[in-house]
Amino acid sequence: MSEPVRLIKKYPNRRLYDTKTSAYITLGDVKELVLKFEPFKVLDAKSGEDLTRSILLQIILEEETGGVPLFSCELLSGFIRFYGSTSQSMLGKFLENNMKTFVDFQQKVQEQSRSLYGGSDTASVQADFWNQFLTFQQPAMQNMMTAYMDQSKKMFQSMQDQLQSQTRTMFGGLGTPDVPEKK
């Protein structure tokens, strides 16, 4: 049986209250829940509104400003440009799926390095492996995205051609009005 989702209430004074432990907690404590893969939900104590995403974004913001950032300015600018575009939901799913694949792959590498090296100095072995993997992965991802974009362009062009053909067929019997030629 799965563990119930841990409920955390956020009060107007910006304090977080963990209903499981009956104690106030910090964003650092919430980060620990994330790291331990413990399911939780943060709700506004007054309105009941789900604030989980905003709390997770606060944690990311603290991490980004407090040390070595994960996201470059160029990447963040790219994210901002996707908001409101037709590709917004596609990007979200793409990132979510790739993050899951990345985490699954990382876990397998950790398991294999533990079995090969018996737990000694696996961090440097993993770092070397990830550098090699990402060096290979970036061009592969670019090629995949280029192929996807080319395919999307062809599909869009095909849809436009088909729509024009159907329009001509539908309105072809009406004839065209005499339009004077330009001199």
Rank of each mutant, 00 (worst) to 15 (best):
E32G: 05
L27I: 10
T21Y: 04
A140V: 05
K46T: 10
R81M: 12
P69F: 06
M159I: 05
D161A: 13
N97C: 00
S113Y: 06
K100L: 07
S47W: 02
N131V: 14
L91F: 00
V103F: 15
A140C: 04
T122W: 00
L174T: 01
M1A: 03
V179C: 07
P39G: 01
S115H: 09
F105I: 04
F136K: 12
G66P: 02
S2C: 05
A140W: 05
K100C: 04
G172N: 01
F82P: 01
F102T: 06
R14S: 07
S72G: 15
Q166K: 13
R14C: 04
Y148P: 00
D18F: 12
T19I: 14
L16Q: 09
M1H: 00
Q88R: 06
I8M: 01
Q164L: 11
V103W: 12
L116R: 14
E3Y: 07
F94H: 08
K183G: 10
T26I: 09
R81P: 08
Y11W: 15
S124W: 00
E74V: 15
G28L: 03
M145D: 09
G173D: 10
A45W: 08
I60P: 03
D150M: 13
S124A: 04
F71R: 07
M170I: 01
E62N: 03
F129M: 11
K182V: 15
L75G: 05
S22Y: 12
G92V: 10
I59M: 00
K46E: 09
R53Q: 09
L51I: 03
F156P: 02
D104I: 07
S158P: 08
M149C: 10
M141W: 14
N98L: 11
Q142G: 12
F136W: 14
G78I: 02
T135I: 08
L76I: 13
F79I: 06
R14W: 05
N13C: 04
I60W: 01
P12I: 01
Q164N: 12
D18P: 06
E32S: 12
Q162D: 00
R114D: 09
G119P: 01
F133R: 00
Y83I: 14
C73W: 15
M141G: 04
K100A: 06
L95T: 03
T169R: 05
L57C: 14
I55P: 09
S124V: 04
S158L: 11
V42C: 07
R14Y: 09
F105E: 10
E32Q: 14
E3W: 06
Q110M: 06
F133K: 00
T52P: 14
E3L: 13
I8G: 01
M90H: 08
L35S: 04
V103P: 07
I80Q: 11
A45D: 11
K46L: 05
Q151M: 12
S54E: 06
D29M: 02
E38G: 02
N97Q: 05
P4W: 13
T52D: 14
L134W: 07
K153G: 07
C73D: 15
S152E: 12
L70N: 08
F71V: 08
Q110P: 00
G48C: 02
N98I: 06
G66C: 05
Q162I: 00
F136N: 11
L61W: 07
V42W: 06
N143P: 02
F136L: 14
S54K: 05
